[in-house]
């Protein structure tokens, strides 16, 4: 009997060694394959992290100068994060509250900026007169560090909290205005023609064409704004004081708790990533061009 059943080629040991692909992959081999795919995503960052930690360690042990060691910082981090919710008066609050106060200011300023910036952006995008009138002013103000506005805020509001919110407002508004107006300008002529043939009135035009067509640009502007706002709030709080992650950094510097500052830097970074991921999720949900 020499005839081999055609539909069972994997039974022979020959084909097993020669073409392992023909075998139905076992769970273990599939797992291994998957592991090899994600490995670079894990291994490479880990290598980078180790290099950075090594450099840090070398600096801390050899140069000294008050740079805390890795172990010391780790202990401080555990200490700060093990009790993030404590609140013994305004001068002694947990790291969670510090972050929350900062986030609150960012959100307040950012929301105000969106409320003002989106309509202004729409006006600038749809009216050449408005655009020509306002563009030069915006071009001059946009590159100014938002912190330069802090004294103006203090003068106007005579209180630190509204001043910090004012700084975030100024920070956030330019990207929102510019992206919104760019979005309105970029609406394809085809959509306008469709609207014209359908005889959409002004309100229908805004609702069915203008808003949905511009939304991706608006969200991009908001995402940029939020990222910058989170950077600026740290600096603003260093100047204004009070409760907040920025002032926490400054306060720990005054107490020469450098390990706390390093922990705070990492926390600020993580919160920034979370904010960006949140905006990314909103974009994916509402942005038709990312569907």
């Amino acid at each position: 009997m020499t005839s081999v059943p055609v539909d069972e080629p994997t039974n022979t040991s020959m084909s097993q060694t020669e073409s392992p692909i023909a075998i139905a992959p076992s769970a273990a081999s599939r797992l291994r394959e998957r592991l090899f795919q994600v490995l670079p995503d894990i291994v490479l960052p880990v290598i980078t992290l180790l290099v950075v930690l090594l450099v840090w360690h070398l600096i801390a042990t050899n140069l000294g100068g008050g740079i805390p060691g890795i172990g010391e910082t780790w202990e401080r981090g555990v200490e700060l994060l093990s009790d993030p919710f404590h609140s013994n008066g305004p001068n002694d609050m947990g790291i969670f509250w510090q972050v929350l106060y900062s986030l609150g200011r960012v959100m307040a300023g950012f929301t105000l900026a969106a409320l003002v910036g989106v309509p202004v952006g729409f006006l600038m995008g749809s009216s050449a007169i408005f655009r020509k009138g306002w563009a030069p002013l915006i071009q001059i103000l946009r590159p100014v560090s938002p912190l330069a506005w802090l004294p103006i805020g203090l003068l106007l509001f005579r209180a630190v909290d509204p001043s910090a919110i004012f700084v975030i407002f100024i920070t956030s508004i330019w990207p929102i205005i510019l992206n919104t107006s760019a979005g309105v300008v970029a609406i394809p002529n085809d959509y306008r023609n469709v609207a014209a043939v359908l005889r959409l009135n002004r309100i229908e035009m805004v609702r069915h064409i203008l808003l949905p067509a511009t939304l991706p640009h608006v969200l991009t502007g908001m995402r940029l704004s939020l990222g910058i706002a989170w950077m600026v709030i740290v600096a603003a709080e260093m100047l204004t004081g009070g409760i907040g992650i920025g002032f926490f950094v400054w306060d720990e510097w005054n107490n020469l708790n450098v390990s706390s500052i390093i922990v705070a830097i990492i926390i600020i970074g993580v919160v920034g990533i979370i904010l960006d991921l949140g905006m990314n999720m909103i974009q994916r949900r509402f942005d038709h061009s990312q569907r």
Binding site: D190, Y191, N193, V194, V197, R199, A213
Partner: peptide, 16 residues
């Protein structure tokens, strides 16, 4: 003026 009594099928479909 444009109007739906002269509906247009655009070259590049122009769907929203």
């Amino acid at each position: 003026a444009p109007g739906p009594d002269r509906a247009v099928v655009f070259q590049n479909h122009s769907l929203l």
